[in-house]
Design a protein around this nucleic acid. Structure first.
Lengths: 239, 239
DNA sequence: GACAGCAGGTGTACGGCGTACACCTCGATC
DNA sequence: GATCGAGGTGTACGCCGTACACCTGCTGTC
């Protein structure tokens, strides 16, 4: 026990951010408060404000930390595999930090790290011969997917604490569902091989993500090869 | 002045939700608190809890109200135009309520209104002959886009209160940008016809939205015509 | 060695938030 | 006329972010 001898190493922005990431990993984004983070660091809440401007800046920094975990681009790949690998690497990082998705969605400032990542992905398309025009629209079309996530659609986040429903209640729910939402039920049944007890767990998110990503990248490639330009397309991109 | 004679009409869930929507339209989602909403309704905060379970339920109800503004499906259209119109109608509703995007993203419960809308869109694909399998994956690929929005990508929400930068500062920023983020700059220049003073205003969000939507729908149609099935596709959907 | 300056940490306080809980009020029902 | 329940009230608690004044101890300068 160093007791009092070696007093706590002085804080700095980096240690604050790392502690915030760690805290969020443990207790979720909602559990991260300036007060709680300060406590974790053995410091009074106001001490944090010497290192981050305010809570918003803290969140920005946390997102930057996640971006810092993305793999660097691999220059040996062509544009399609290049973007694919980059985005899937982003996905891995975001999945390591369950709060990251929500944090990224809530951010409204573009930090240098954010811009650098977007610039890098954009550059991959350009290096692949894409026009500025097409690159621009394709980046928009990818949207949040460049951060490695897409919204949960059917996944019910049924909290793990809830007790499993008794079979007859499941039956009743299924009946109600079948009447009101036949098409959603159909999909749920197909995705879970008929076992509705775990609806939501049935969707293979990784598959869905790659499916959508490749749908977009393939479509983009098709437009590129065809010499598509937004000037010629007041109509939607024709089939 | 009715003074005391005609006392305030009694609250009900609907009036509470409508007032919440109105309040959010005026002051944004962050400005909506139980206390402020109560004040708006001339009532004490705790009175609201007789009509909504808690703030989360209030948000759910507000989202449901927006969904209630979506146009009904038009059975005369084929699947592609059907989905297209439906989603664009959702977009119009969401754009009428600037807070709706954020509210929808934050929701985690699937209310009956949410399920009903998803069921309806799903049903349009099915009626168009799509397999359950393909419909499932395409719904995932659409993701948040079925709510009529995609994430802002390049749009800096530069708050309107900020004074316009002096020209030389703009120059300096552009120079810094050009060095660090050449590809993003390139796009910004193209999108704004060289007038960087309004970066962000340059993107035609409606065009971007339709572009991405049609890219996805066209891709989906191609897979459908080809009889695509996820069983046959352990590999990504081939070009 | 004295001292100014300053980066980093502290303590207190304010105004906001969501909401638990006990209570009151008043019109409908028997 | 008593009862009851739906709707509204009042008070209180424990959180939150952060403004502001203050203290502490190291650094460089003379």
């Amino acid at each position: 026990m160093t007791e009092e001898g070696a007093r706590r190493a002085p804080l700095n922005r980096d240690r604050v951010l790392r502690a915030a990431v760690e805290l969020a990993d443990e207790v979720g984004l909602a559990g991260v408060s300036m007060r709680r983070l300060a406590q974790q660091l053995g410091v009074v809440p106001m001490a944090l404000y010497k290192h981050v401007a305010d809570k918003d800046a803290l969140l920005d920094g946390m997102v930057d930390a996640v971006i810092g975990e993305f793999d660097p681009p691999d220059p040996a790949l062509d544009w399609q595999d290049g973007v694919r690998q980059r985005v899937l690497s982003a996905r891995r990082a975001v999945l390591r930090h369950p709060w990251a998705r929500q944090a990224i969605e809530s951010r409204t400032r573009r930090t240098p790290a954010v811009l650098a990542y977007m610039d890098s992905v954009t550059g991959t398309f350009r290096a692949g011969g894409f026009s500025v025009d097409l690159t621009h629209h394709v980046m928009h079309a990818l949207g949040n997917r460049i951060w490695g996530f897409s919204p949960e659609l059917f996944d019910e986040p049924r909290d793990p604490g809830a007790p499993p429903l008794p079979p007859e209640a499941q039956q009743a729910m299924a009946a109600e569902f079948a009447e009101r939402y036949p098409h959603v039920l159909e999909i749920a049944l197909a995705a879970t091989q008929g076992d509705l007890s775990g609806v939501g767990r049935g969707c293979d998110e990784d598959f869905e993500f790659a499916f959508a990503l490749d749908l977009l990248l393939d479509g983009a490639g098709r437009l590129h090869r065809r010499g598509w330009s937004s000037r010629a397309a007041s109509a939607p991109p024709a089939v």
